[in-house]
Design a protein around this nucleic acid. Structure first.
Lengths: 191, 191
DNA sequence: TAAAAATGTTAGTTATCACTAACTCTCATT
DNA sequence: AATGAGAGTTAGTGATAACTAACATTTTTA
């Protein structure tokens, strides 16, 4: 059986990813977790305490460098697939925090760092990868940074739209979206 | 000089695009608009009334069909530029509503329609455009819908990330992002 | 300039919310 | 059987927010 504090944190994140931090009351969290309000306060002192514990527990720091140093095979299609999947993987694990960060961006701008830092790091790795691929003569000589930004923006666009608007938006399944996107980039960039 | 009710609506939208509907108080709106709380209530009855009037006043319905029927020249680069600029133009005009829609999506799911409807409409027009281009033998024979979705997702990703995370994210200027993106798509899709 | 319309001021109502305090209940361990 | 930890219950405090009512003041207009 689940520990009480875990139940509370899970309930809090579940509610906050839909409504944000300040729009969710302790009462709601307690109901969702099936405990009394007092139990929540006893475990976490304040509402902010619940939130901070939840972020700490559920935020995920991806290790893109390892992936890059171990699994890159210098084949554009395979490598872009790997990169894209790693990105989706890390963003999916941080989905709740991503959604809360959006909603509370004016009150807790620090939260953005979790998301922004990951993305910037990946961006730099992709730039380095593209540069290497150009040196290996496997990619056309275009602006590596610009291509990296476009690639990441596309991935971000997919993740963001499916997270925020559920399937009511452009709805294509992740797998097929990914295949088509990578094919497009390969078509444009491969030498 | 600006009418009082316009001042209020403008203040409300300005505040709500950062914090959302329910996190902004009438007091804040009144201060921002430099009127008294009572004036706000006298003009709009309820807080919800302020919001509804603001949405009605500032939501923008783009006329993509007209653009497509008048300004398309059947040159992939020129046409994609036109399409992308029209998209950014309409989204920029709806930026405040877009940001509020995100924040209040669990309470006012109807709001999404303004954004989703525009995007879906544009998507269908792009699919039709790609199909025609293929028939004219100016584009490779790929899945038109998939390409349209990728193109729109990329544009959405740029708009969404710059709107939400200001310049702290992938920061490339709209103009150069657009040029590079369209060049990539042309490289991949042109025959 | 006088009436009318718009806005300000002040005080108050009701509801909700974060949080506290004091007390009770349950149940596993010894 | 006694203890103590974890959880529930109830009542309450102080703050804030939406909204109302009554009256005063300013601005616009005829």
């Amino acid at each position: 059986m689940q520990k009480t504090s875990d139940k509370i944190l899970h309930a809090a994140l579940t509610l906050m990813q839909d409504k944000g931090f300040q729009a969710v009351s302790i009462k709601e969290i307690a109901q969702q977790a099936d405990v009394s309000e007092m139990t929540v306060f006893r475990h976490f002192k304040t509402k902010m305490g619940v939130f901070e514990s939840a972020v700490e527990k559920f935020s995920y720091i991806p290790y893109f460098e390892e992936i890059f140093s171990n699994q890159i095979v210098w084949d554009l299609e395979k490598d872009l697939t790997l990169i894209a999947k790693s990105y989706f993987d890390s963003m999916n694990k941080n989905r709740a925090i991503f959604l809360i960060a959006i909603q509370e961006r004016s009150d807790f701008p620090e939260l953005n760092h979790v998301i922004v830092k990951n993305t910037m790091q990946l961006k730099n790795l992709i730039i380095a990868y593209f540069t290497s691929m150009q040196e290996k003569n496997q990619m056309k000589e275009t602006n590596a940074e610009a291509q990296a930004i476009i690639f990441l923006t596309t991935l971000y666009g997919y993740f963001s739209s499916t997270s925020l608007w559920k399937d009511h938006f452009l709805h294509e399944w992740e797998e097929s979206f990914l295949t088509n996107t990578i094919q497009l980039f390969c078509e444009a960039l491969k030498k």
